Amino acid sequence: MSNARILVTGATGQLGRLVVQSLRTLVGADRIIVAVRDPAKAADLAAIGVEVRAADYNQPAQLIAAFAGVDRVLLISSSEVGARLPQHRNVIDAAVKAGVKLLAYTSLLRGDASPLPLKAEHVATEAYLQAAGLPFVLLRNGWYTENYNGFIPSALEHGALFGAAGEGRIAAAARADYAEAAARVIAEGEAHAGKIYELAGDQPFTLADWAAALAEAAGKPVAYQNLPEAEFRGLLVKVGLPEPVADLLASADAGAAQGGLFDDSHTLSRLIGRPTTSLGAVLTAALAR
């Protein structure tokens, strides 16, 4: 369907904006619709010819109206951990009622087998989507390399990176890599229906590798210090992170230690037609800001 209209939810988020940027190159702005909670935050997208519609994950009627005339939907998972499942159900139900021909969902790497507690809402969403009778594709995203950028200032200040991932290999990729894959899949459309893509970076690293790469990029010594999960969580709370965020980061590290963030299928690089962005490139970009 060469003239299919594509809707992206959560389009003013970090991933969503990158998806729209890639989609604009692939299909042109006139085929893109963005569904956002606050249309004012998408004024820049409207200015380049993207249609902006108001849609809150918590408002079923608003979602149904936003999906009118839409052929394909990219459901970018909600950022509200703990409230995701009912929100995702609302989106899926609205897509069914609107007669959407394909829905792509950004899930979690090997969600059904992942040791990360974060998997629960993703697994439940996948099950609901599969039962909905709507053609779908699962984009099981691994970790974003940028997830660690917040640790850069303290690591450089103290010469140490703390974590609980042990020797776990983390097949992270840049957020833009995942965004490009999502854009390509939703642009190509129904040929991807029924597919489950395990998406991860080409060059896995341990947190000790991350510390060494930061040291090289910044020209300052940085060493990795592994902690028990509970101790790492306590440290994160002590430095001011909210408890839910500390829980998320500590449990992710513990999951990484069990292999939960590793994948060597290279599916992501095949989808985007190039190698995924290197750790060094992400760190260099972060340090340049």
Rank of each mutant, 00 (worst) to 15 (best):
I196L: 04
L129R: 06
P135R: 08
D177Y: 02
A179Y: 06
E190V: 12
S154T: 10
A208E: 14
G166K: 02
V185Y: 05
G201I: 03
A213N: 03
E167L: 12
F162C: 03
L108R: 01
V100L: 07
A124W: 04
R175W: 00
A208K: 11
G111N: 11
A217Q: 14
Y144M: 10
G194W: 13
G111R: 01
G163N: 07
A113E: 15
A104C: 14
D177L: 02
A120Q: 04
A208S: 13
Y178I: 04
S114P: 01
G194T: 10
V96E: 05
L134F: 05
F205V: 07
R175M: 07
G111L: 02
G150F: 06
G219A: 14
P135K: 10
Y144S: 06
A131W: 09
L134V: 05
T145M: 15
G133F: 13
A217F: 07
F136R: 10
T125W: 01
E188C: 08
A213V: 05
H192Q: 08
A95M: 08
Q130C: 09
A95T: 07
T125S: 11
G111I: 00
H192S: 04
G194C: 12
G142I: 00
L103W: 01
L139F: 02
G189E: 05
Y197K: 10
F136Y: 15
T125P: 01
T106S: 13
G150T: 06
S107I: 01
Q130H: 15
Y144A: 12
E126V: 15
K97G: 12
A193H: 08
A120H: 08
S154R: 13
Q130R: 15
P135F: 12
V100A: 10
Q203V: 08
A211H: 09
A155Q: 04
Y144F: 14
P135Q: 13
L102G: 03
A165Q: 08
S107G: 05
N141C: 03
W143T: 11
P115H: 06
V137N: 05
A160G: 03
T106Q: 05
D112R: 15
A179H: 08
L138E: 06
V96P: 01
E190T: 11
L102Y: 02
G99I: 15
